[in-house]
Amino acid sequence: TGEEYIAVGDFTAQQVGDLTFKKGEILLAIEKKPDGWWIAKDAKGNEGLVPRTYLEPYS
Rank of each mutant, 00 (worst) to 15 (best):
I26H: 06
L19M: 06
Q14C: 11
D42A: 02
G9N: 15
R52D: 13
G9E: 15
I30R: 04
F21I: 11
E47V: 15
E4K: 14
I6E: 04
L55I: 08
E56K: 12
V16M: 11
T20A: 10
Q14M: 12
F11E: 00
G45M: 04
L49R: 15
T20M: 05
K33E: 05
T1R: 14
Y5E: 01
E3Y: 10
Y54W: 09
I6R: 09
E31P: 03
A40E: 02
Y58E: 04
P57K: 11
L27F: 08
F21Y: 03
V8G: 04
K33R: 15
G9K: 15
N46D: 08
A7T: 10
E4I: 14
P34F: 10
K32A: 06
A40Y: 04
D18F: 15
S59D: 13
A40P: 01
I30D: 00
W37H: 06
L49I: 08
F11V: 05
E3R: 11
D10Y: 05
L28N: 07
P51T: 03
P57I: 09
G45N: 06
D35F: 05
V8H: 05
E31D: 12
K23A: 09
F11G: 01
T12Q: 11
K32D: 03
P51H: 15
D35A: 04
A40I: 07
G2K: 13
V50Y: 01
I6A: 04
E4C: 14
D10F: 04
D10T: 07
K32L: 07
K41F: 05
I6T: 05
G36I: 04
V16P: 15
L27T: 00
D18Q: 15
K44E: 11
L49V: 08
G36V: 03
R52V: 14
Y5C: 03
L19W: 00
F21T: 02
E56N: 07
G36T: 03
T53V: 13
A43I: 10
N46S: 08
K44M: 13
A40M: 15
V50F: 01
T53P: 09
G17I: 04
G24W: 05
I30Q: 04
E25M: 08
K22D: 04
W37K: 08
D35K: 03
S59F: 14
S59K: 13
Y58N: 07
G24T: 02
L28P: 00
G48I: 03
Y54H: 14
T20P: 10
N46F: 08
D35E: 07
P57L: 12
F11D: 00
G36A: 04
K44A: 13
I30L: 12
A13Q: 05
F21E: 01
G48N: 00
S59G: 11
D18K: 12
A13E: 04
K32F: 08
Q15M: 11
